[in-house]
Design a protein around this nucleic acid. Structure first.
Length: 889
RNA sequence: GCCCGAGUGGCGGAAUGGUAGACGCGCUGGAUUCAAAAUCCAGUAUCCGCAAGGAUGUGUGGGUUCGAGUCCCUCCUCGGGCACCA
């Protein structure tokens, strides 16, 4: 196919130009801006504006940085990147000071596994992958400030990841102030028990195939998120981060964020707050007590048995001699079952311990069972079972013939012996009989508190974050051990770099590979380094902060800079209003809803409490781009052979066409399938833009010359200057039709950009070009204004034509066009005539026609007359300038 | 099972409660060409009709309204998340 236009010459030329001139460099407050830089020409300021500067509000627009995998970019990456790039270019033209950085999330399992497989060092493959990703991303012409590039595996970067870990290690969450404070403010006897980073022996998700433990968030259906290997529970001593301390604040903070509601809900459910009561049950004939958590204290009178998780520490104490062997056998059976098996088992199982507990509200003796439908990890690992009002307890009681006592009457029916789990009215419930469920809850909880038998309690599903991994390719902990006690390294000793190792394979025993680096482990004072490494999420928890000050050797981020880029701003009038959080817009995949986005918020809040960042939330507005499917409508996968390689698309149609198609496919947030014919469609549009400006004859001559020049790229690029402007382009003032078309387009594109409606903005530009092609002349001012609209979407072509139109400077900082209402008022409008809501005719009329005029217009219309003849006119509805509806009956 | 989101031509998708199907793809016909590619022009929801025109039409069934793709209720299908969380 003949090239629609020489994008292969235009695109590299402008990419080179932008990089060489650092066109998209984001200047920090107080930093001198070179005279020659277009930012300075636009803003006429000697230095970048300060926070108060009303003329250049700042905008921080961020992409989720990629994990540079070996297979390179796929077309899903540029979707979000294109959207943010368009907005960045738009906001620069609107006079904003834009920060738009890119970097690499390069630690992690895939790199290490690949390295083990091929026998190369992960650093080498990581470097190669980054080079590929950088090349591919730059080939799309994104306006990143490459001076701010970060790489999580760079010691200069992870020095500060380790430093933040130390901030957490040296801090505790003070329940009185509800914030993190230096550990020095802690008055208790054991500071190690309250640190935000702590060591604990806990049942963890151990994945034998990966040779490491995983966080809850990394386990999906009992399998590892990476690789899909089975995961089992086993107790291990691990580093944990006390994210649960922030459960309430992580939940509350969501309200002020401009995130998709669905995603907020995902986080809410993951945090899983539930209100209820903790209730203590005395064990009959023993000193022990069982504490349970229940959301239904109002059903206490219906508790007919109790259940402990098989792993509960009280099991040994309370089991009677007669039940010992049965209990032991059951516990053994449970421990051999994986989490997945436990979930798949539909039938409930359990064993009686022989012990009885006393129900505190009525002193009834109820049996204590153990059963694996009670989880050790939630609440207290013990429940009071109310079979009449809980479906799990119901199933269990039915199976083991345990009595069922109704204590809540359903609001609708009379008393039944059916399971009922909703709200109703209490019966058979002592002092709360007759109360509605919410009142009953309040009263019984108050009663329990008064008697010191229980108290109001809030439980969360969220668990502390298991933070250590038994892998090589991650950040080492800045921690050392001596006599089984851990201590922190000094900040001055950071970064703790990875040792060079020939063999960094997992040991398979749960001992980390770094344990094999015996020399590296040893410290002069006789202590040994921690050999676990941090999970992949560590580096991505704070990278958006490092972008603000990527080269600072003495601080993770200078306060003045974070103050400037993250503080609330008063924006351009039509834009986002004041907001409490940092990054103005964050675009990425929804798969990070409970991983990166939750972890990041947690770290940020801790840093905020400790005074290291100026705002309480990291990401104010978040948008998830939808998945791009293959041409077959299936998820892109190598195994399906439906993966689209951006390199191929760019080679055939160019970066501008690729960008445009990614946006034209449909709404950003939607899942949608790729089609190459669709790419060709937008490519043809760009060709039409080109021919709107370029003279056909000179294009033919140029094409012939290109063929002669063969592979001489430099000569070909030069030859482009021989392409002449189209003969219809002149300096005449645009006529009213042309002005109306132009200003309609300005309005539509501007409004769509503000609403992130990229597909419809492109469609509006197509409409413009289709019309402009039919004009008798092409006023240069009109055409140039159109180029400014096109520039954020197809920046290479726009720059090339801009300079062809005689402009000497980049259009990246040209003021965004304004539309004038005076060009948009159309006097002649089409009036729709309806009878009983059905369209019967359309007539032209002036916009200003009065209601009465419109009414008579309708009544005199022959088509309308036809449909109302012989009927009574009951009513007439008039929408001025739009329609008349005659209601007859 | 529970919680979200979505159902519009052959396809991707447009539509402040007021002309359903913008724009693009595909398809059909035409111009250009020795021919093709590319380009340009016209048409393209369905059914009836030579036409003018009519009827139907936004997953299903109901409702509100002068008027519903849009608002309310019911059900169905698909996509995503959670899943013994007491």
């Amino acid at each position: 196919m003949r090239r629609q236009y020489p994008f292969h010459l235009i695109e590299p030329k402008w990419q080179r130009d932008w990089l060489d001139r650092k066109t998209f460099r984001a200047f920090d407050p107080g930093e001198p801006v070179p005279d020659s830089h277009p930012f300075r020409r636009r803003h006429k300021k000697p230095v970048a504006p300060s926070k108060a500067d009303p003329y250049a509000p700042r905008r921080y627009i961020l992409d989720m940085f990629p994990y540079p995998s070996g297979s390179g970019l796929h077309v899903g990456h540029p979707e979000g990147y294109t959207a943010t790039d368009i907005l960045c270019r738009y906001h620069r033209m609107r006079g904003c000071h834009v920060l738009h950085p890119m970097g690499w999330d390069a630690f992690g399992l895939p790199a290490e596994q690949y390295a083990i497989k091929t026998g190369q060092h992960p650093r080498k493959t990581t470097e190669e992958n980054i080079a590929t990703f950088r090349r591919q991303i730059q080939a799309l012409g994104f306006s990143y400030d490459w001076d701010r590039e970060v790489d999580t595996t760079d010691p200069k970067y992870f020095k500060w990841t380790q430093w933040i870990f130390l901030q957490l290690y040296h801090a505790w969450f003070n329940p009185a102030t509800q914030k993190a404070e230096p550990i020095s403010t802690y008055r208790g006897s054991d500071p190690d028990s309250v640190r935000l980073a702590y060591v604990a022996e806990v049942p963890v998700n151990w994945c034998p195939d990966l040779g490491t433990v995983l966080a809850n968030e990394e386990v999906i259906d009992g399998k590892s998120e990476v690789g899909g290997f089975p995961v089992e529970r086993r107790p291990m001593r691990q580093w944990m981060l006390r994210i649960t301390a922030y459960a309430e604040r992580l939940l509350e903070g969501l309200d002020a964020l401009d995130w998709p509601e669905g995603l907020k809900l995902l986080q809410k459910n993951w945090i899983g707050r539930s209100e209820g009561a903790a209730v203590k049950f005395q064990i009959s004939n023993l000193k022990s007590q069982i504490e349970v958590f229940t959301t239904r204290p109002d059903t206490l009178f219906g508790a007919t048995f109790m259940v402990l998780a098989p792993e509960h520490s009280l099991v040994d104490t309370i089991t009677t001699a007669a039940q010992k062997s049965a209990v032991a056998a059951y516990r053994k059976e449970c421990s051999s079952k994986s989490d997945q098996d436990r979930q798949l088992a539909k039938e409930k199982t359990g064993v009686f311990t022989g012990a009885y507990a006393i129900n505190p509200v009525n002193d009834e003796k109820i049996p204590v069972w153990i059963a694996d439908y009670v989880m050790m990890g939630y609440g207290t690992g013990a429940i009071m079972a109310v079979p009449a009002h809980d479906d799990r307890d119901w199933a269990f009681a039915k199976k083991y013939n345990i009595p069922i006592i109704q204590v809540v009457q359903p609001p609708t029916s009379a008393k039944t012996d059916e399971l009922f789990t909703g709200d109703g009215t209490n019966i058979n419930s002592g002092m709360i009989t007759g109360l509605a469920t919410p009142d009953a809850k309040k009263k019984i909880t108050a009663w329990l508190e008064e008697k010191s038998l229980g108290k109001k309690t809030i439980q969360y599903k969220l668990r502390d974050w298991l933070f250590s991994r038994q892998r090589y390719w991650g950040e080492p902990f800045p921690i050392a051990w001596k006599s089984d006690k851990h201590h922190a390294m000094e900040t001055s000793q950071l970064p703790i770099e990875l040792p060079e190792m020939g063999d960094f394979k997992p040991t398979g025993t749960g001992e980390p590979p770094l344990a094999k680096a015996t020399e590296w482990r040893k410290l002069p004072d006789g202590s040994l380094r921690e050999t676990n490494t941090m999970p992949q999420w560590a580096g991505s928890c704070w990278y958006y902060l490092r972008y603000l000050d990527p080269k600072n050797p003495t601080s993770f981020c200078d306060n003045k800079k974070s103050e400037y880029w993250l503080s609330p701003i008063s924006n351009l009038k039509s834009q986002i209003s004041n907001h409490p959080a940092g990054v103005d817009l964050y675009v990425g995949g929804a798969e990070h809803a409970v991983l990166h986005l939750l972890y990041s918020r947690f770290w940020h809040k801790a840093l905020f409490d400790l005074g290291h960042v100026p705002v309480p939330e990291p990401f104010h507005k978040l948008v998830n781009q939808g998945t791009i499917l293959g041409e077959d409508g299936q998820k892109m996968a190598k195994s399906r052979g439906n993966v689209v390689n951006p390199d191929v698309v760019i080679a055939e149609y160019g970066a501008d066409a690729m960008r445009l198609y990614e946006m034209f496919m449909g709404p950003l947030e939607q899942t949608k399938p790729w089609t190459m014919t669709g790419v060709e469609g937008v490519y043809r549009f760009l060709g039409r833009v080109w021919r709107l400006f370029a003279d056909e004859a000179s294009l033919e001559a140029f094409d012939q010359k290109l063929t002669m020049l063969g592979n001489d790229h430099a000569a070909a690029e030069k030859t482009m200057t021989e392409i002449k402007l189209h003969a219809l382009i002149n300096n005449d003032a645009p006529n009213p039709t042309q002005l109306t078309t132009l200003h309609k387009t300005i309005r539509k594109v501007t409004q769509d950009l503000d609403a992130m409606g990229f597909n419809t903005a492109i469609s509006a530009m197509m409409v413009f070009v289709n019309e402009a092609m039919t004009w008798p002349n092409r006023p240069s001012s009109t055409l140039k204004t159109f180029l400014l609209l096109l520039a954020p979407f197809a920046p290479h072509l726009a720059e090339e034509l801009w300079s062809k139109m005689g402009e000497k400077e980049t259009l990246a900082y040209e003021p965004w066009p304004k539309y004038g209402d005076q060009y948009l008022v159309e006097n002649e409008v089409e009036i729709v005539l309806q009878v009983n809501g059905k369209i019967r005719d359309k007539v032209r009329g002036t916009r200003s026609l009065s209601e009465d005029a419109l009414k008579s217009l309708a009544m005199e219309n022959p088509r309308v007359k036809e449909f109302i003849s012989g009927k009574t006119v009951r009513k007439m509805v008039v929408v001025p300038g739009r329609l008349v509806n005659v209601v007859v009956g």
